[in-house]
């Protein structure tokens, strides 16, 4: 399981830059990030190399955020691997609420971040099929 921080931001120019600067200028590295918009507001989901410090910085900046746990999966960076993981989950009737993926420094590997409706069950079925679950990224 991987810790993720979600932050509420207004959907207007400059807000993402400001948010990233708050974190980046204080030496916290954003390892993964997803930006979603819903009309006049948006949501940033991110995984950093120092979540405690990132949260302290956000709190200090007066922002609304929440820490949560998501599923981190290491997968092959090749056609079909995302489909395979999705199928394993769907066969077990697990719903994916959202997901984002990115390639890594490890050669031929990609990381998939998943939010599912049943985290424990998902870990169990994925492990059974030999998928490697990450503790951090």
């Amino acid at each position: 399981m991987v810790e993720q921080i979600s932050v509420f931001i207004d959907n207007r120019p400059g807000r993402l830059a400001e948010l990233c600067n708050i974190i980046g200028r204080n030496g916290v590295d954003i390892r993964a990030l997803q930006l979603v918009e819903a009309g006049e507001f948006g949501l940033v989901r991110m995984i950093t190399d120092n979540n405690e410090k990132a949260m302290a910085l956000l709190k200090n900046a007066g922002m609304s955020f929440r820490k949560g746990e998501v599923l981190g999966v290491l997968m092959e960076d090749k056609p079909g691997s995302l489909g395979l993981i999705a199928s394993i989950l769907s066969d077990a009737s697990i719903n994916i609420e959202y997901a984002y993926a990115f390639i890594t420094k490890i050669e031929k590997k990609a990381i998939l971040i998943l939010k599912v409706n049943d985290l424990e069950k998902a870990i169990k079925v994925l492990k059974l099929k030999g998928v490697s679950i990450l503790e951090n990224i």
Binding site: A38, L43, R45, S64, R66, K115
Partner: peptide
């Protein structure tokens, strides 16, 4: 204003 109390990770 969306406070921490009402903020949700779900759109």
């Amino acid at each position: 204003e969306v406070t921490n109390e009402i903020f949700s990770d779900s759109i």
